[in-house]
């Protein structure tokens, strides 16, 4: 069995690749090799012997889906990959589009459909929530700075200004809002989402959908330490029936296929949960779910292979993850190999 995993950028804003691989290996049932797929020669997971056997550089899907596919097909021609496990937002559209062609090469994937990806998009999420009776902060889709002049009454400052793919800032007045608007429009393009700011504590759920409406697993957590980049550096599993039932409802409504992370805020004055975002892949803290008893990465691998699996029933509350950094020492030769030949071998 050969599984290729992306997102080995275990840096200060880490990709989920390394924790996903650890989950698969921790299952004790996995026999085979893990191959890394890299967008950058210095992604740490490629240099970690206990994580990847070999890694290959691949082009960004944004540079062209054909050459992206060609490179994967080339690597597959001698590696014979069974499953590709994509873990990053920006590549999911490409993998979703290519899932049929990859299947023809004998490569299985577990990725959301294009329709699911569009529906959970930041610009569509509010509509989706309204239709399915899920609380979500009110928003408007702004296509020009003029839209900021006439905000509807539901939007009082402070508001959240969000890019269509990444980034979000809280703006306290019109001046700040228009500055963020311009900044994000130039970086990620239009439209920009202007969202109601809801004050309260944030909670996250990592979940896995089987594509037929069933949540195979879902684990809720609260971040305990947040870096200046807004990433959780420590977190704890919690149990709240309501949080989990909303998560199941989302998976059912979308027939979600694959891993996901739901971000919620619990409104300070009413205690209601508001859905802020659906990330269409596992978060980097997915290993906490493994540690708490739900090996969601391995379950996702089983789903990708077409195996029938039973949903997880529960998990341990009060398990904590604490992230740390660790310096690897490698020879220049390794960097040369990946730079020049596009392959790095740990075997």
């Amino acid at each position: 069995m050969k599984v290729a995993v992306t997102g080995l950028n275990n840096v200060d804003s880490p990709g989920p690749g390394v924790p996903v691989i650890r989950g698969i290996k921790d299952s004790g049932k996995f026999e085979g090799e893990i191959i890394g797929l890299l967008y950058d020669a210095l992604e740490p997971g490629a240099y970690m012997r206990e994580v990847t056997s070999r890694s290959y550089l691949i082009p960004y899907p944004s540079s062209g889906i054909e050459s992206f596919f060609d490179r994967l097909a080339y690597i597959n021609s001698f590696e014979k990959i069974d499953v590709i496990f994509p873990t990053l937002d920006a590549e999911l559209f490409a993998f979703s589009k290519l899932s049929g062609k990859l299947n023809d090469l004998g490569i299985k994937t577990l990725v959301p459909t294009m329709e699911q990806l569009v529906l959970r998009g930041k610009d569509k999420l509010f509509d989706f929530c309204t239709k399915n009776n899920i609380n979500a902060p009110y928003n408007i889709i702004a296509s020009s700075i003029n839209d900021l002049y006439a905000l509807p009454k539901e939007l009082q400052y402070p508001v959240v200004i969000k890019g269509i793919f990444y980034d979000a800032y809280v703006a306290h007045n019109f001046q700040e809002a228009s500055a963020y608007f311009t900044k994000m429009a130039s970086k990620w393009g239009l439209p920009i989402i202007v969202q109601e700011f809801i004050s309260g504590e944030e909670y996250n759920v990592v979940a896995l959908g089987d594509g037929e409406g069933t949540a195979i697993g879902a684990v809720a957590s609260k971040k305990m330490y947040i870096t200046d980049k807004g990433k959780g550096w420590a977190g704890v599993t919690i149990m709240d029936e309501e949080l989990l039932s909303i998560s199941q409802k989302i998976i059912k409504a979308l027939n979600w296929r694959g891993g996901a992370e739901f971000e919620f805020v619990k409104k300070r004055d009413t205690g209601e949960y508001f859905l802020l975002e659906i990330n269409p892949r596992f978060p980097a803290w997915v290993y906490l779910a493994v540690g708490a008893g739900q090996n969601l990465p391995y379950a996702a691998l089983q789903l990708a292979l077409g195996e029938k699996i039973e949903p997880f029933e529960n998990y341990e509350v009060g398990k904590i993850f604490i992230r740390y950094s660790w310096d690897l020492i490698v020879d220049m030769k390794k960097f040369e190999d990946i730079t020049v030949n596009g392959v790095l071998r740990n075997d």
Partner: peptide, 12 residues
């Protein structure tokens, strides 16, 4: 292989 390393600047 065509890889160059500059020992005094660390550039490649």
């Amino acid at each position: 292989s065509g890889f160059l390393f500059m020992a005094n600047s660390g550039e490649s």
